[in-house]
Design a protein around this nucleic acid. Structure first.
Lengths: 130, 130
DNA sequence: CTGTATCCCGTCTGATACTG
DNA sequence: CAGTATCAGACGGGATACAG
């Protein structure tokens, strides 16, 4: 291995190529974060349970999201070849660690979202068309 | 104040109408989070400084992002009517508190992104076309 | 310097229909 | 049950031109 070729070790979030952008891709994904929270709450869940629990997600988006999270090593997909088939999803330790991080977001939201709402209302009032 | 009328106090992240979705809209927004980090790092910054610091952001997106954050009460916009005009942006206390939350994300990223990369590589290898 | 206004294309998403 | 395939519409976001 060539030690002279390892610039990616440093993080520069402002660089377009910073890997941290990919984390935001996951966290920011509405469905991905909901899947993580759901699995973090109640342990393994079946496909259909997730579909029922997460309001508004389409079949396509759920599948797509699960594939992405599986690829990133955040959850495992277990197929039981019964009839009909049964597929369970479960967070990996990596997935659990991310869930804890998401919990910080949740706490911030619960603590400060009312302020954001107030700020929005004030802003909209000030900029409303007369 | 009418205590009988406060159902929104409970959070159900799985409900389509949950206010927490709006937090993800902000955090997940690539440019919004970068603006917050940038301002959290070096105090107030001018429009042009932000544009220079945040690699790859277009004029349109920067302005749009700043307006959104201002509306949410996360930063203030101060216009100095000189010639040419000067505009400074600064985090509010609310914005600073969110910055701390984003820092948790950053720490997770630095600690675990290599694992995600490894997982992706393994997944892609396993699913590659032969 | 700091925006606003338009055009426009690629991506994302949701329905719908079909399969192992 | 748990997906895959396909298509059309909505939307984000960049490039460009122009204004206060």
């Amino acid at each position: 291995m060539d030690v002279t070729a390892d610039p990616p070790a440093r993080f520069d979030v402002f660089a377009a190529s910073c890997p941290s952008r990919r984390l935001l891709d996951t966290i920011g994904d509405k469905w991905a974060s909901l899947v993580i929270v759901a699995l973090g709450l109640g342990g393994p869940m079946r496909y259909s349970e997730l579909a029922a629990r997460i309001e508004g997600v389409s079949q396509k988006m759920l599948t797509q999201t699960l594939r992405g999270l599986e690829r990133d090593g955040l959850l495992t997909r277990t197929v039981t070849p019964s009839v009909p088939v049964r597929v369970d999803y479960e967070l990996t330790p990596l997935g659990y660690s991310l869930k804890d991080t998401i919990r910080h977001l949740k706490e911030w939201a619960e603590a400060h979202l009312p302020e954001v709402d107030a700020a929005r209302a004030a802003y909209d009032r000030a900029h409303a068309k007369p």
